[in-house]
Design a protein around this nucleic acid. Structure first.
Lengths: 185, 185
DNA sequence: CAGTTCTATATGCATCCGCATATAGATGCA
DNA sequence: TGCATCTATATGCGGATGCATATAGAACTG
């Protein structure tokens, strides 16, 4: 199960379910979605299975938090998942499917679809760009090679997000231009 | 529900569940996964809901097939889905999450991970490339603008797949080089 | 000090999903 | 003719998922 392994990965540092949810909304946003209730249930299940342990800690700004940390069994499970190689073949990308069928609606509406998509992607891209800029200014010369192992891998996924999103934006813009061209003919 | 809408899209042309499964394995492979039993169950459900109708037809190479076609209600449902704009926020991309945590295993194994990923992506890319080449030679001058509306939108998703996968391959190769560099230092 | 918002966790319920398995016609081949 | 393989559809079951909803402490707001 990917979700459980992702939670194990995040729990390299102790965290509560609510923290994790926010991580899904920012860092993981462009490649994995998880519902809050799903996270809480997974955490409970994983504690029962001995992959995690928790303790209640007072919060600085709200009710008590249940802070989870990985057990050695949890770390082993995560390592096995990673050693198993890339998990491929479960990709979900709804809007690509939609584009496949976009000839079923009127050209004007299809263009509106693309405009909306473009806006969303540009927003995603600038979020990622901002994160990278922050890293870049914090780290000194030789960035990103001077990062420690953990940060380096985090940066790799960020770089991936940037490249993927840039490619997407270029494609959307090219598509919009082509659609306009077709309409004018 | 995205799956049902995707099925409606595919059923622009009548098809049986088994045909649809093969479409998922080829055209839709890089952006949507669906299990055979899931497809059959969705088709049954959708017929009950009046989105599809079916009739048994003899097969050329096996038992009788249940060939489905869209009803007007089905077409309306699909159009609504598309007019609703891009469905974002449900993306699932397990291997990207894995990369995020790859510092948890030994560098040699992490590199192996990337090598495997690279191979898979290159295979995906050449599949897409082959499809595009075929289109390109079949269609004459002015490709892709001379395609009819349906083919044009299909080509757009293909182009998207190509750009996205190319960006991914470039990134994997850059990442491998960076990892090698770090190891040597 | 009442109301709203944010933090924080949890449950109920209906449906979805994935895996194993059943059934069976058609084809090929040894 | 027996057996494997491919085509084709379906069900049972356990667990995952998504949405609505409950509960409640803490902070801010008028």
């Amino acid at each position: 199960m990917s979700l459980e392994n992702i939670l194990l990965g995040i729990l390299k540092r102790p965290a509560a379910g609510y923290d994790i949810k926010r991580q899904f909304e920012t860092v993981f946003n462009h490649f994995w979605h998880a519902d809050l209730t799903q996270i809480y249930r997974a955490l409970n299940r994983m504690e029962k299975d001995g992959l995690l342990e928790s303790r209640l800690e007072p919060s600085e700004r709200g009710p008590a938090r249940k802070v989870y940390r990985r057990t050695p069994a949890g770390s082993r499970t995560l390592a096995e998942w990673l050693r198993g190689g890339p998990v491929l073949g479960n990709e979900k990308f709804a809007y690509l499917a939609q584009i496949h069928f976009l000839d079923e609606i009127e050209p004007a509406q299809a263009e509106e679809f693309f405009d909306t998509l473009r806006e969303e992607l540009v927003t995603q891209l600038s979020t990622l760009d901002a994160i990278e800029q922050e890293w870049r200014t914090e780290a000194g010369e030789g960035f990103p090679d001077t990062l420690d192992d953990e940060d380096f891998h985090t940066w790799l996924t960020l770089d991936m997000g940037l490249r993927k999103t840039r490619a997407l934006v270029e494609w959307v813009e090219a598509s919009i231009a082509r659609l306009r061209g077709r309409r004018e003919r």
